[in-house]
Amino acid sequence: MIEVALLVTLKARAGKEKEVAEFLRSARSIVEQEEGTRAWFALQFDESTFGVFDVFPDDEARQTHLSGGVGQALAAQGAELFSVEPNIQNLDVLAFKLPGESV
């Protein structure tokens, strides 16, 4: 079951777009180790705007993810890579479709 999600919007510093894209690609290996993260997507909206959308079974799993490896890496590299603080939105999931899961 999936009940909650995160939508994180990231704005790359000028000239750091490729580094942000690579950072997000490399984060996949960290997220794969998180049992509570049911689905995770790294996104690029335009040349300098990136995002992450992920879903969780409950708020405990969401909070574990936020304090986990990707969150720590964002905090460590954020000032270098991003022009503004990440915009983190907590969302409730109303319905979903994932392989092997049902509402």
Rank of each mutant, 00 (worst) to 15 (best):
G69S: 09
F53E: 03
L6E: 10
D92Y: 08
L43N: 12
A5K: 04
E80M: 13
E17C: 05
P99T: 10
E101I: 07
Q33I: 01
A39L: 13
T9S: 09
L7N: 10
G68D: 06
G100Y: 14
Q63F: 06
F96W: 07
G100F: 14
P86E: 14
V55K: 04
A75Q: 15
T49E: 11
E85H: 15
F53V: 02
V31F: 02
P86Q: 12
L91N: 04
L24W: 12
R28Q: 06
K18P: 01
V31Y: 03
L98Y: 11
I30C: 14
Q63P: 05
F56P: 00
H65F: 02
E80L: 14
I30L: 15
V93M: 00
P57C: 06
L43Q: 14
G36T: 01
A27M: 07
A12Q: 05
P57G: 13
I2F: 00
I88G: 02
V84F: 06
R25V: 00
E32A: 07
Q33V: 01
P86V: 07
G71Q: 11
H65Y: 08
L94N: 13
E22K: 13
T49R: 12
F50T: 03
D92S: 12
A42T: 03
L94V: 13
A73V: 04
A39P: 14
Q63Y: 08
I88T: 02
G15Q: 08
F45V: 03
F96D: 03
D54Y: 00
D58K: 02
S29V: 01
G100D: 15
T49H: 13
L6P: 04
W40C: 00
Q77H: 15
L24A: 10
S26K: 15
Q77F: 12
D92Q: 11
K97P: 12
L98M: 12
A39F: 13
V84M: 09
L24Q: 11
V55Y: 04
F82S: 08
Q63I: 06
V103A: 15
G68K: 04
E60H: 15
A14L: 07
D92V: 07
T49Q: 10
V4E: 02
G51V: 00
R38N: 05
K11S: 15
K16S: 07
D54M: 01
A27C: 10
P86I: 08
Q33M: 08
L66D: 08
R62V: 04
Q72P: 05
G51N: 03
F41M: 02
A75H: 14
R28K: 12
N90D: 10
R25D: 03
V31G: 01
N87C: 13
Q89D: 11
P57K: 09
A61K: 04
G71L: 09
K97M: 15
F53S: 04
F96M: 05
G15D: 07
V52R: 00
R28F: 02
V70H: 04
G36Y: 06
S26F: 12
K97Y: 15
E19N: 08
F96P: 02
V55I: 07
Q44W: 09
A5M: 06
A76M: 12
E19C: 03
S102M: 14
R25A: 03
A14E: 12
M1T: 03
D54L: 00
I30Q: 15
E3P: 01
F82P: 07
M1I: 02
L7F: 11
G100W: 13
D92E: 14
G68F: 04
I2R: 01
E22L: 09
Q77C: 10
P99V: 08
